[in-house]
Simulated assay, not measured.
Amino acid sequence: MHPIARLAIVAVAAFSLAACGNRNEVGSVGVDWTGNDISIEALADPDIDGVVCHLSFFNRSFIDRLSQGNWFEDPSYSALDCSAVGPITVGDISTRGAGEEIFREGRSLIWKSLRVTRIYDSANNALVYLAHARQIQQGSGKMSLSVVPLNGLDVTWENGAPTPEPAVEGSVLVQ
């Protein structure tokens, strides 16, 4: 067998095995006869106990990959919803405006990934979660946003609560 063909078979087998048995998968809904699915995963925030996000995204089937010819890429579309599922304990998180990435999953062989970034909104005392695709070039505007307000919840800050920043002009400060 030709070495390139052997490499292609190994790559397809590895991707197939990687897609099987995701322990965070909540469910999967078939959307057409070719086997394309929308998968839903539960993502616990690794630095914040008591917050869980549910992320849904499109998984292309083998038949779709065969008919479309683009073997190594899934669409960037996703949806995200996060909620408090109990008392919240905030660990060591970034309070910078750029936030920090809490989840990453490849959506192509090399260049594209689906990510979830957490940003702390100190003016409104809320956790903002952004699901987005990241690519080397031609970035995508496809995104989804979810907010977990911390006001009125049982929240413990392990390193002490950050001092609230004044609200940005035009924004609403919820008290």
Rank of each mutant, 00 (worst) to 15 (best):
S94F: 06
S67N: 07
W111C: 06
N22E: 09
R104D: 11
L80V: 07
Q175C: 02
G170R: 07
A42N: 01
I38M: 12
A42W: 00
V10L: 14
V31M: 13
P87I: 01
E25L: 06
D92Y: 01
V128Q: 12
L7P: 00
L114M: 08
V52C: 10
R60D: 04
A131K: 04
A98C: 07
W157L: 10
P149S: 03
L153C: 04
A44V: 03
A11L: 13
T117R: 11
A98L: 12
E73R: 09
C20R: 13
K112A: 07
L7E: 05
A5M: 06
S113D: 12
W157N: 12
V174H: 11
V12G: 02
A13R: 13
R118F: 00
N36W: 08
D74E: 13
Y129Q: 06
A126Y: 10
V29Q: 08
C53A: 14
D121H: 14
D47S: 04
P87Q: 10
V29G: 01
G86W: 13
R107W: 07
R118T: 05
R107L: 05
G139M: 09
P149N: 05
R107P: 00
S144G: 05
C82G: 06
G91M: 03
V148S: 03
S78H: 07
S28M: 13
G21R: 14
R118C: 01
N24A: 03
D74C: 03
D81R: 08
S140R: 09
A79Q: 11
I4A: 08
L66P: 00
S140H: 00
I110E: 11
K142R: 14
